[in-house]
Protein backbone atom coordinates (compact mmCIF):
# COMPACT_ATOMS: atom_id res chain seq x y z
CA UNK A 1 0.00 0.00 0.00
CA UNK A 2 1.33 3.38 -0.92
CA UNK A 3 -1.37 5.39 0.86
CA UNK A 4 -0.47 6.93 4.18
CA UNK A 5 -1.42 4.70 7.11
CA UNK A 6 -3.69 6.79 9.28
CA UNK A 7 -4.96 4.45 11.93
CA UNK A 8 -3.59 1.10 13.03
CA UNK A 9 -5.34 -0.64 15.91
CA UNK A 10 -3.61 -3.78 17.15
CA UNK A 11 -5.10 -6.15 19.74
CA UNK A 12 -7.16 -3.49 21.48
CA UNK A 13 -8.64 -4.83 24.70
CA UNK A 14 -11.00 -2.98 26.96
CA UNK A 15 -11.96 -4.03 30.47
CA UNK A 16 -14.54 -2.83 32.95
CA UNK A 17 -13.12 -2.03 36.39
CA UNK A 18 -14.58 -5.34 37.62
CA UNK A 19 -12.60 -7.25 34.99
CA UNK A 20 -15.38 -7.93 32.48
CA UNK A 21 -13.78 -7.81 29.04
CA UNK A 22 -15.71 -5.69 26.56
CA UNK A 23 -13.26 -5.77 23.66
CA UNK A 24 -11.35 -8.99 23.13
CA UNK A 25 -8.48 -7.69 21.01
CA UNK A 26 -9.69 -5.60 18.08
CA UNK A 27 -7.36 -5.10 15.09
CA UNK A 28 -8.15 -2.58 12.34
CA UNK A 29 -6.31 -0.52 9.75
CA UNK A 30 -7.35 2.62 7.92
CA UNK A 31 -5.46 4.65 5.31
CA UNK A 32 -5.97 8.28 4.42
CA UNK A 33 -8.60 8.69 1.70
CA UNK A 34 -10.30 5.43 2.65
CA UNK A 35 -13.57 4.88 4.46
CA UNK A 36 -13.75 1.92 6.79
CA UNK A 37 -17.18 0.64 7.70
CA UNK A 38 -17.28 -1.07 11.08
CA UNK A 39 -20.41 -3.26 11.09
CA UNK A 40 -21.85 -5.37 13.83
CA UNK A 41 -24.92 -5.89 15.96
CA UNK A 42 -25.56 -4.16 19.25
CA UNK A 43 -23.03 -5.26 21.83
CA UNK A 44 -20.41 -6.20 19.25
CA UNK A 45 -18.12 -3.43 20.49
CA UNK A 46 -18.11 -1.25 17.38
CA UNK A 47 -18.98 1.93 19.24
CA UNK A 48 -16.55 1.13 22.04
CA UNK A 49 -13.77 0.79 19.48
CA UNK A 50 -14.60 4.23 18.08
CA UNK A 51 -14.79 5.80 21.52
CA UNK A 52 -11.42 4.29 22.40
CA UNK A 53 -9.83 6.00 19.42
CA UNK A 54 -11.33 9.27 20.64
CA UNK A 55 -10.07 8.55 24.16
CA UNK A 56 -13.55 9.14 25.53
CA UNK A 57 -13.78 6.12 27.81
CA UNK A 58 -12.00 7.28 30.96
CA UNK A 59 -13.63 4.69 33.23
CA UNK A 60 -12.37 1.68 31.24
CA UNK A 61 -8.97 0.05 31.16
CA UNK A 62 -7.53 -0.15 27.66
CA UNK A 63 -4.56 -2.22 26.53
CA UNK A 64 -3.09 -3.01 23.14
CA UNK A 65 -2.16 -0.36 20.63
CA UNK A 66 -3.90 2.43 18.71
CA UNK A 67 -1.46 4.14 16.36
CA UNK A 68 -2.77 7.36 14.86
CA UNK A 69 -0.35 8.78 12.26
CA UNK A 70 2.37 6.91 14.10
CA UNK A 71 1.41 8.28 17.53
CA UNK A 72 0.36 5.84 20.27
CA UNK A 73 -3.07 6.82 21.69
CA UNK A 74 -3.54 4.12 24.34
CA UNK A 75 -2.85 5.61 27.76
CA UNK A 76 -2.03 8.99 26.25
CA UNK A 77 -2.44 11.74 28.88
CA UNK A 78 -5.75 13.53 28.49
CA UNK A 79 -3.99 16.87 28.05
CA UNK A 80 -2.25 15.64 24.89
CA UNK A 81 -5.31 13.74 23.68
CA UNK A 82 -7.41 16.89 23.99
CA UNK A 83 -5.26 18.62 21.37
CA UNK A 84 -5.98 15.81 18.89
CA UNK A 85 -9.65 15.52 19.68
CA UNK A 86 -11.74 17.83 17.54
CA UNK A 87 -8.67 18.98 15.62
CA UNK A 88 -7.05 15.87 14.09
CA UNK A 89 -9.73 13.30 14.99
CA UNK A 90 -13.35 14.37 14.96
CA UNK A 91 -16.53 12.48 15.62
CA UNK A 92 -20.19 12.73 14.64
CA UNK A 93 -22.93 10.99 16.55
CA UNK A 94 -26.13 9.12 15.92
CA UNK A 95 -28.69 11.60 17.16
CA UNK A 96 -27.83 15.19 16.23
CA UNK A 97 -30.75 16.40 18.35
CA UNK A 98 -29.21 15.29 21.63
CA UNK A 99 -25.60 15.61 20.51
CA UNK A 100 -25.88 19.37 20.24
CA UNK A 101 -26.31 21.41 23.39
CA UNK A 102 -30.01 22.35 23.21
CA UNK A 103 -29.60 25.79 24.75
CA UNK A 104 -27.03 27.32 22.40
CA UNK A 105 -27.25 28.16 18.73
CA UNK A 106 -25.72 25.80 16.18
CA UNK A 107 -23.29 28.50 15.06
CA UNK A 108 -22.05 29.24 18.58
CA UNK A 109 -21.26 25.57 19.06
CA UNK A 110 -19.30 25.33 15.83
CA UNK A 111 -17.47 28.60 16.62
CA UNK A 112 -16.52 27.10 19.95
CA UNK A 113 -14.77 24.15 18.38
CA UNK A 114 -12.85 26.38 15.96
CA UNK A 115 -11.76 28.66 18.78
CA UNK A 116 -10.76 25.74 20.97
CA UNK A 117 -8.07 24.80 18.47
CA UNK A 118 -7.23 28.00 16.60
CA UNK A 119 -6.45 31.50 17.80
CA UNK A 120 -9.03 33.37 15.78
CA UNK A 121 -11.47 36.11 16.65
CA UNK A 122 -15.16 35.47 17.14
CA UNK A 123 -15.90 37.12 13.83
CA UNK A 124 -13.35 35.02 11.91
CA UNK A 125 -14.67 31.87 13.55
CA UNK A 126 -18.22 32.72 12.56
CA UNK A 127 -17.19 33.44 8.97
CA UNK A 128 -15.62 29.99 8.84
CA UNK A 129 -18.70 28.41 10.41
CA UNK A 130 -20.97 29.94 7.80
CA UNK A 131 -18.61 28.79 5.06
CA UNK A 132 -18.62 25.24 6.45
CA UNK A 133 -22.39 25.13 6.73
CA UNK A 134 -22.65 26.29 3.14
CA UNK A 135 -20.26 23.59 2.00
CA UNK A 136 -22.38 21.01 3.79
CA UNK A 137 -25.37 22.12 1.72
CA UNK A 138 -27.24 24.03 4.43
CA UNK A 139 -29.47 26.62 2.74
CA UNK A 140 -29.08 30.20 4.05
CA UNK A 141 -26.09 29.28 6.23
CA UNK A 142 -25.71 32.63 8.01
CA UNK A 143 -29.29 32.38 9.24
CA UNK A 144 -29.00 28.69 10.06
CA UNK A 145 -25.99 29.42 12.28
CA UNK A 146 -28.21 31.54 14.50
CA UNK A 147 -30.77 28.78 14.90
CA UNK A 148 -31.08 26.44 17.89
CA UNK A 149 -30.85 22.69 17.28
CA UNK A 150 -34.58 22.06 17.77
CA UNK A 151 -35.41 24.66 15.13
CA UNK A 152 -33.69 22.69 12.36
CA UNK A 153 -34.87 19.53 10.64
CA UNK A 154 -33.10 16.24 11.34
CA UNK A 155 -31.19 16.33 8.08
CA UNK A 156 -29.96 19.90 8.59
CA UNK A 157 -28.96 19.12 12.16
CA UNK A 158 -26.80 16.23 10.98
CA UNK A 159 -25.25 18.46 8.30
CA UNK A 160 -24.45 21.01 10.99
CA UNK A 161 -22.96 18.24 13.11
CA UNK A 162 -20.73 17.19 10.21
CA UNK A 163 -19.79 20.84 9.62
CA UNK A 164 -18.71 21.06 13.25
CA UNK A 165 -16.69 17.86 13.02
CA UNK A 166 -14.93 19.11 9.89
CA UNK A 167 -14.34 22.62 11.24
CA UNK A 168 -10.68 21.99 12.02
CA UNK A 169 -10.07 19.79 8.93
CA UNK A 170 -9.41 16.55 10.80
CA UNK A 171 -7.38 13.75 9.27
CA UNK A 172 -9.78 11.16 10.67
CA UNK A 173 -13.55 11.46 10.89
CA UNK A 174 -15.38 8.93 13.04
CA UNK A 175 -19.12 8.67 12.37
CA UNK A 176 -21.13 6.63 14.88
CA UNK A 177 -24.40 5.54 13.23
CA UNK A 178 -24.72 8.96 11.57
CA UNK A 179 -27.89 8.14 9.63
CA UNK A 180 -29.76 5.76 11.91
CA UNK A 181 -32.02 8.49 13.29
CA UNK A 182 -32.79 9.89 9.84
CA UNK A 183 -35.36 9.07 7.16
CA UNK A 184 -34.10 7.15 4.12
CA UNK A 185 -34.27 10.06 1.69
CA UNK A 186 -32.27 12.22 4.10
CA UNK A 187 -29.92 9.34 4.86
CA UNK A 188 -29.11 9.14 1.16
CA UNK A 189 -28.14 12.83 1.19
CA UNK A 190 -25.86 12.38 4.20
CA UNK A 191 -24.20 9.28 2.72
CA UNK A 192 -23.43 11.22 -0.46
CA UNK A 193 -21.90 13.97 1.68
CA UNK A 194 -19.73 11.49 3.58
CA UNK A 195 -18.47 10.06 0.31
CA UNK A 196 -17.43 13.54 -0.86
CA UNK A 197 -15.55 14.15 2.38
CA UNK A 198 -13.64 10.92 1.94
CA UNK A 199 -12.83 11.75 -1.67
CA UNK A 200 -11.27 14.99 -0.45
CA UNK A 201 -8.65 12.96 1.39
CA UNK A 202 -9.82 12.45 4.97
CA UNK A 203 -9.99 8.99 6.49
CA UNK A 204 -13.51 8.04 7.57
CA UNK A 205 -14.44 5.39 10.11
CA UNK A 206 -18.16 4.69 9.82
CA UNK A 207 -19.84 2.72 12.59
CA UNK A 208 -23.11 1.15 11.47
CA UNK A 209 -25.32 -1.91 11.65
CA UNK A 210 -26.52 -1.48 8.06
CA UNK A 211 -24.68 -3.35 5.31
CA UNK A 212 -26.32 -1.12 2.71
CA UNK A 213 -24.87 1.98 4.31
CA UNK A 214 -21.42 0.39 4.28
CA UNK A 215 -21.77 -0.49 0.63
CA UNK A 216 -22.66 3.08 -0.26
CA UNK A 217 -20.20 5.07 1.82
CA UNK A 218 -17.17 2.86 2.47
CA UNK A 219 -14.17 1.46 0.65
CA UNK A 220 -13.35 -1.15 3.29
CA UNK A 221 -15.32 -3.01 5.89
CA UNK A 222 -14.60 -4.68 9.21
CA UNK A 223 -17.25 -7.01 10.60
CA UNK A 224 -17.32 -7.17 14.38
CA UNK A 225 -18.90 -9.80 16.56
CA UNK A 226 -18.80 -10.05 20.31
CA UNK A 227 -15.82 -7.75 20.89
CA UNK A 228 -13.72 -8.98 17.96
CA UNK A 229 -13.15 -8.21 14.29
CA UNK A 230 -14.02 -11.45 12.51
CA UNK A 231 -13.56 -10.29 8.94
CA UNK A 232 -11.90 -7.35 7.26
CA UNK A 233 -11.35 -6.37 3.64
CA UNK A 234 -12.32 -4.20 0.65
CA UNK A 235 -16.03 -3.58 0.70
CA UNK A 236 -16.84 -5.11 -2.71
CA UNK A 237 -14.93 -8.30 -1.98
CA UNK A 238 -16.52 -8.82 1.42
CA UNK A 239 -20.06 -8.11 0.26
CA UNK A 240 -19.77 -10.20 -2.92
CA UNK A 241 -17.85 -13.06 -1.38
CA UNK A 242 -18.15 -13.09 2.41
CA UNK A 243 -15.79 -15.58 4.03
CA UNK A 244 -16.65 -15.72 7.71
CA UNK A 245 -19.82 -17.70 8.48
CA UNK A 246 -21.11 -14.78 10.55
CA UNK A 247 -20.71 -12.32 7.68
CA UNK A 248 -22.42 -14.78 5.36
CA UNK A 249 -25.33 -15.25 7.76
CA UNK A 250 -25.64 -11.52 8.40
CA UNK A 251 -25.85 -10.74 4.70
CA UNK A 252 -28.34 -13.54 4.10
CA UNK A 253 -30.62 -12.31 6.89
CA UNK A 254 -31.32 -8.99 5.13
CA UNK A 255 -34.64 -9.29 3.28
CA UNK A 256 -34.01 -8.64 -0.45
CA UNK A 257 -35.52 -5.59 -2.15
CA UNK A 258 -35.73 -7.21 -5.57
CA UNK A 259 -35.90 -10.61 -7.16
CA UNK A 260 -38.05 -13.44 -5.86
CA UNK A 261 -39.28 -13.19 -2.31
CA UNK A 262 -38.00 -16.06 -0.17
CA UNK A 263 -40.56 -18.11 1.75
CA UNK A 264 -38.51 -17.68 4.93
CA UNK A 265 -35.45 -15.60 5.70
CA UNK A 266 -32.31 -17.51 6.68
CA UNK A 267 -31.66 -16.75 10.36
CA UNK A 268 -28.87 -17.17 12.86
CA UNK A 269 -30.21 -19.20 15.75
CA UNK A 270 -29.82 -17.94 19.29
CA UNK A 271 -28.48 -14.65 20.63
CA UNK A 272 -25.01 -13.06 20.70
CA UNK A 273 -23.25 -13.88 23.99
CA UNK A 274 -23.09 -11.21 26.69
CA UNK A 275 -19.56 -10.00 27.61
CA UNK A 276 -19.45 -12.06 30.83
CA UNK A 277 -20.18 -15.42 29.17
CA UNK A 278 -18.29 -15.33 25.90
CA UNK A 279 -16.96 -18.69 24.78
CA UNK A 280 -13.22 -19.18 25.24
CA UNK A 281 -12.90 -20.47 21.68
CA UNK A 282 -14.32 -18.86 18.56
CA UNK A 283 -16.94 -16.37 19.78
CA UNK A 284 -19.35 -17.32 17.00
CA UNK A 285 -19.00 -21.09 17.44
CA UNK A 286 -22.23 -21.63 19.47
CA UNK A 287 -24.34 -20.15 16.64
CA UNK A 288 -22.25 -21.33 13.70
CA UNK A 289 -23.54 -24.00 11.33
CA UNK A 290 -19.98 -25.01 10.31
CA UNK A 291 -18.77 -25.55 13.87
CA UNK A 292 -16.08 -28.22 14.35
CA UNK A 293 -13.72 -29.34 17.06
CA UNK A 294 -10.92 -26.86 16.20
CA UNK A 295 -13.30 -24.01 17.05
CA UNK A 296 -12.60 -24.57 20.75
CA UNK A 297 -9.40 -22.57 20.21
CA UNK A 298 -9.99 -18.95 19.24
CA UNK A 299 -8.80 -18.40 15.65
CA UNK A 300 -6.60 -15.34 15.03
CA UNK A 301 -7.42 -12.72 12.39
CA UNK A 302 -5.15 -13.85 9.53
CA UNK A 303 -4.53 -12.43 6.10
CA UNK A 304 -5.62 -15.05 3.60
CA UNK A 305 -5.28 -13.00 0.43
CA UNK A 306 -4.19 -9.47 -0.50
CA UNK A 307 -6.02 -7.12 1.88
CA UNK A 308 -8.48 -9.71 3.18
CA UNK A 309 -8.34 -10.98 6.70
CA UNK A 310 -10.64 -13.41 8.44
CA UNK A 311 -10.74 -15.11 11.84
CA UNK A 312 -12.07 -18.58 11.12
CA UNK A 313 -10.67 -22.12 11.14
CA UNK A 314 -12.29 -22.81 7.76
CA UNK A 315 -9.58 -20.72 6.12
CA UNK A 316 -6.61 -21.86 8.16
CA UNK A 317 -3.88 -22.95 5.79
Amino acid sequence: MDAEQLLDIQGLKLNLPDGTRLLEGVSLRLNAGEALGVVGESGSGKSLTAMSVMGLLPGLKASGSILFSGQELVNLPDKVMRKLRGARIAMIFQDPMTAFLPVRSIGAQIDEQIRLHHRVSRREARARTVQLLERMGVPDPAMAAKRYPHQLSGGLRQRAMIAMALSCTPALLIADEPTTALDVTVQAQILTLLREIREEGAGVMLITHDMGVVAQACTHVAVMYSGLVVENGPVRDVLDRPLHPYTQALLAAIPPLDGPRPERLPTISGQPPTPDNRPTGCVFAPRCSFVRSECAVRPPLTEIEEGRRVACVLYAA
Binding site: R85, F100, L101
Partner: peptide, 13 residues
Protein backbone atom coordinates in the same frame (compact mmCIF):
# COMPACT_ATOMS: atom_id res chain seq x y z
CA UNK B 1 -25.99 13.68 28.18
CA UNK B 2 -24.91 13.20 24.58
CA UNK B 3 -24.11 16.87 24.25
CA UNK B 4 -21.47 16.62 26.96
CA UNK B 5 -19.88 13.75 25.07
CA UNK B 6 -19.88 16.01 22.02
CA UNK B 7 -18.15 18.75 24.01
CA UNK B 8 -15.41 16.30 24.98
CA UNK B 9 -15.14 15.12 21.40
CA UNK B 10 -14.61 18.72 20.34
CA UNK B 11 -11.50 18.82 22.48
CA UNK B 12 -12.85 20.91 25.34
CA UNK B 13 -10.95 20.58 28.61
Amino acid sequence: EDSIRTARAKGAG
